[in-house]
């Protein structure tokens, strides 16, 4: 596992869930569960650090996805975005962001 790749996956999911500047507990928990299921060795500290970095960075969803372009993990990325964002109900902004992820990755699936 390339740990930086997982960091970027976390940040893409954070982009979808945290469109308004906050990520709810349910969303964060869903995100973490899915990450741990797929990458059991990914440390919790790293997960927290990735989310903290996300709030301090000005990168857009496209920028993060660009870094994941050749990862071959598109189904997992779409899945984590969809499940974590809908953990406490999918609002309009989250839905638009999710659609964007699907649109960008869809052409490569």
């Amino acid at each position: 596992m390339e740990i930086e790749i997982v960091d970027f996956i976390v940040k893409v999911a954070a982009c979808v869930c945290g469109k308004d500047g906050i990520i709810s507990q349910a969303e964060e928990k869903a995100m973490l569960n899915l990450i741990i299921l797929e990458y059991p060795n990914y440390p919790l500290e790293r997960f927290n650090q990735a989310l903290d970095e996300f709030f301090d960075e000005t990168l857009q969803i496209e920028d993060y996805l660009h870094k994941l372009a050749r990862s071959g993990l598109n189904p997992f990325i779409i899945n984590i975005c969809e499940l974590s964002a809908s953990a406490d109900g999918l609002d309009i902004k989250e839905n638009i962001a999710l659609h964007k992820v699907k649109l960008i990755l869809g052409s490569e699936i």
């Binding site: 945290g18 500047g21 906050i22 990520i23 709810s24 507990q25 964060e28 989310l51 709030f55 301090d56």
Partner: peptide
């Protein structure tokens, strides 16, 4: 109770 992650920590 709930914790919402945000810039600089939690609400």
């Amino acid at each position: 109770s709930e914790k919402l992650r945000c810039k600089g920590g939690y609400i």
